[in-house]
Design a protein around this nucleic acid. Sequence first.
DNA 1: CTACCATACGTTGTATACAACGTATACATA
DNA 2: TATGTATACGTTGTATACAACGTATGGTAG
Lengths: 234, 234
Amino acid sequence: MEFPVTRVAPGSKGEQAAAQLRYEIIAGIRGPGEVLSENSIASACGVSRSPAREALRILKAEGLVSLERLGAVVSGMTETDVEELNDIRLLAERFAVERCAEKGDPSLLASLSYHIEQMRLALNRLDGVAFAFEDMAFHEAIIHASGHHRLRTVWEGMRRLILTAMIIATVRRFEEESGFEAYLMQTHVDIYEALRRQDAEAVSDCLQDHFADTRRAVEKSVSTTTKPGGDADD
Amino acid sequence: MEFPVTRVAPGSKGEQAAAQLRYEIIAGIRGPGEVLSENSIASACGVSRSPAREALRILKAEGLVSLERLGAVVSGMTETDVEELNDIRLLAERFAVERCAEKGDPSLLASLSYHIEQMRLALNRLDGVAFAFEDMAFHEAIIHASGHHRLRTVWEGMRRLILTAMIIATVRRFEEESGFEAYLMQTHVDIYEALRRQDAEAVSDCLQDHFADTRRAVEKSVSTTTKPGGDADD
DNA sequence: CTACCATACGTTGTATACAACGTATACATA
DNA sequence: TATGTATACGTTGTATACAACGTATGGTAG
């Protein structure tokens, strides 16, 4: 799989290097315990230390590495990490829909409907990457529609992490799994319908179901990932 | 007020510069709309562009500035921002105590009790900074006790922002307000007691009360702040 | 064989130099 | 006067050089 670095991080070389490393860490290509020095990243990504340094700071903020004195140690993404990430996503989106219910943004429903349709099209093309982007856009629309700046800032801090994990999981699911399409689409439609009915409790339940499914899918991807560089059991 | 930069950010020059700027933005010394170039920060803080650049990235991640092409534009902290920050804090801590209830960490209660006692001592000394640090430690203990790594990562992303706002608000409250001590201490004791009784619902209510009070205090500080550099209403 | 010390290397933190890009301003021309 | 253009400046992004620090390793003395 060739990871769409520039689509995930369209910005500077530092962000692109971070995007590449993020992918490699989440995909398990770089296993937990592996040490990343600024120089090694610089040479690996073909850039100088300045962007490499920036990449490391980004990855640190996302909790993917811990900056030690000797270098950045890869934390990796375990099943627990995926589960926790979904905890937070569920927490954030439930909060967001509560706020949406108060405000009642009419353009949100249109946006969600649009992304559901785009997901259908991507599904027909068996384009996992496109599907993941639309899936992401669906959930991001809910966050944005809340109109809560701070929630959005928090979201921004884990946005690319989530997007990357979703791309990996979705592509793998498209390749390996079968028969999941109906349920995957349905959970999004359920959320949409519940929002349209302004049934807050139903939305909450639908989100919970959806993330339970997401968790299963992502965990399967993460756990089946080989870790060539890993096993650094000091 | 001399802001304890090194206590908030004991790290590199970049982090210290960020701490200083963070304080100045939250305190309103640097108003919304003000433009911060890397060079101006470098000269203002007496460092080179490398730490200045790092500081700007940190502030961007915290949502205090937005990085435009022309430079970093200060977003500032409005009353709405403070309110939103407390929304997220309440959300995070409620989630944390739910997890704590499941696990039942005995050392948490001891930690909370200790910090309450330290708050009392700081109160007697009329030491606003020390009080804020203990207040912070109290709430941070709850987050940590949840054992939720991702929640901690999210918390880490807004930790210094919250700490700075708390220091400013607390110091101001110590200087200007009076008669608030009893209630301020009581809300923390209430949280502690509810946790000790393992009464999840009561904890939630206590947290809500506490943050409602915090919001009032911080908002008062922010709103009464003069903004000499601001008023950049393009 | 062990313990200690010196040296060399690798790491991050910081400063500076260079390149690319956009903008604003001043000037010339219609 | 209005408009188009060219130039100069300020900005970020990137590369490189230097400094400080810790560690690991090798050698030497006991």
